Amino acid sequence: MPWWTGLPLLLGLAAIQAIQLPRLQRYNGMLRPALRWGLAGLLAAGFRAFDNHGLGLTLTALAALAGFTLLVLLESWQDHKPQRSAAAAAASPEWSELAQAPIGPSGTLIELQAPDWITLDSAATKVLGDVAMLDARSCIVGAAARIDNIELKVSVAPGRRWLAWPMAAWRGVVLYDRADGKLYRLRSWQLYGWHAGEAWLSRSEEQPPLALSHVLGQDQRDE
């Protein structure tokens, strides 16, 4: 057999390594030794083709220097090139898939209306209508809804369905639903604002505000 018989196979292995097909990446541990030993075998076969002549030794040494230099550069490029494994490729779509994917609904921008605190006094009760002050820490809504241990300040939601009072010493917030006649006392929460007639509450400046429906569900899960 001629000495260059293994050259096509060697070039094919080098092409596989350079292309880096995802389905063949698991064979990298076998392909690299095959390239190294294949190059060494090809050099030995080329040297023997010169019948141990001095020119053959010189050409083989030059070929070995060039071949192993290219092999080292190829392996170094592979090691430093960001690779995308088959699992990652299956999990994350290609840019062409993202470009053809349908566009989802746009996000909703929520703008909260800051609470307007009204001091409960004789003038304010005339404006609010069904809210009357009883003493320094209590008021009454309508005929029977008594709110105790509060600061005499009230905020009315847009639509006037909800009323909010700070707890005494601002330790929390009291919310009253006029439509259902329900009262909610939430310690450590403060009224941050109103949106779509619903109260949004916050515990600190570092945390984003949450809707009342979410806060009530969270408190029920904590219980």
Results as ranks from 00 to 15, higher is better:
204 S>R: 02
175 L>S: 07
122 S>L: 08
101 A>H: 01
188 S>H: 13
53 H>M: 01
50 F>A: 12
146 R>E: 08
211 A>N: 04
35 L>D: 01
136 A>K: 12
134 L>Y: 01
92 S>T: 14
194 W>P: 11
188 S>Q: 14
9 L>Y: 12
203 R>H: 08
215 V>I: 09
19 I>D: 03
37 W>E: 13
107 G>M: 13
28 N>W: 05
82 P>C: 06
112 L>Q: 04
46 G>S: 13
184 Y>Q: 14
6 G>C: 12
165 W>Q: 01
31 L>A: 10
207 Q>N: 06
24 L>I: 11
10 L>R: 05
19 I>P: 04
31 L>H: 09
69 T>W: 09
43 L>T: 05
80 H>E: 15
3 W>S: 12
216 L>H: 01
174 V>D: 08
105 P>Q: 12
147 I>E: 02
164 A>P: 03
127 V>L: 05
3 W>P: 09
148 D>M: 02
10 L>A: 07
64 A>W: 10
98 L>I: 04
170 W>M: 08
119 T>N: 10
83 Q>C: 07
217 G>L: 09
124 A>F: 00
131 V>E: 01
72 V>S: 13
177 D>V: 11
96 S>Q: 14
199 A>E: 02
191 L>A: 02
217 G>W: 04
158 P>V: 01
169 A>H: 14
137 R>N: 12
111 E>L: 13
114 A>I: 02
127 V>Y: 02
56 G>P: 10
74 L>E: 08
57 L>K: 07
81 K>F: 08
112 L>T: 09
70 L>D: 12
92 S>N: 11
4 W>V: 10
132 A>V: 15
49 A>V: 10
154 V>A: 05
45 A>L: 15
93 P>L: 02
98 L>W: 03
170 W>R: 09
17 Q>K: 02
61 A>G: 11
152 L>I: 00
168 A>S: 11
139 C>G: 04
187 R>Q: 13
221 R>M: 09
213 S>F: 06
26 R>E: 03
202 S>K: 07
215 V>F: 00
215 V>M: 06
211 A>C: 04
9 L>G: 15
118 I>N: 03
134 L>T: 08
67 G>S: 05
142 G>C: 02
